[in-house]
């Protein structure tokens, strides 16, 4: 088993990389919103797609808040999996 400094060292760059990818994902979303191309379709469909997209992003933002908790009451991964499995946030099955 690794010591705390070993864990911090071994997975630092990988975690940095994953955080940058998430930040880029959120920036990409904001840029798309700024360009105004939510999707094709009529007004109602566009509004519905925009609302669905915003809901997904909200789940990610909540997940980030859970991830950054310094002293969580239970494992962060467990809380995140519960969040992603909740009926209002669940992703469709492929």
């Amino acid at each position: 088993m690794l010591t705390p400094p070993q864990v911090a060292e071994a997975y630092f760059l990988e975690s940095r990389h994953m955080l940058l990818e998430i930040a880029a994902y959120l920036d990409r979303y904001d840029a798309a919103v700024a360009r105004g191309n939510h999707s094709n379709g009529n007004g109602n469909a566009k509004a519905s797609n925009a609302a669905t997209a915003e809901k997904k992003l909200d789940v990610i933002r909540r997940a980030l808040a859970i991830t950054s908790e310094a002293q969580p009451t239970k494992q962060r991964t467990l809380t995140l999996l519960e969040l992603f499995a909740a009926p209002e946030t669940k992703a469709p099955n492929p």
């Binding site: 760059l13 990988e14 990389h17 940058l20 990818e21 880029a24 994902y25 990409r28």
Partner: peptide, 9 residues
């Protein structure tokens, strides 16, 4: 893969 830019970025 990890330490520089990524394809998506």
């Amino acid at each position: 893969p990890i330490t520089k830019c990524s394809p998506k970025r």
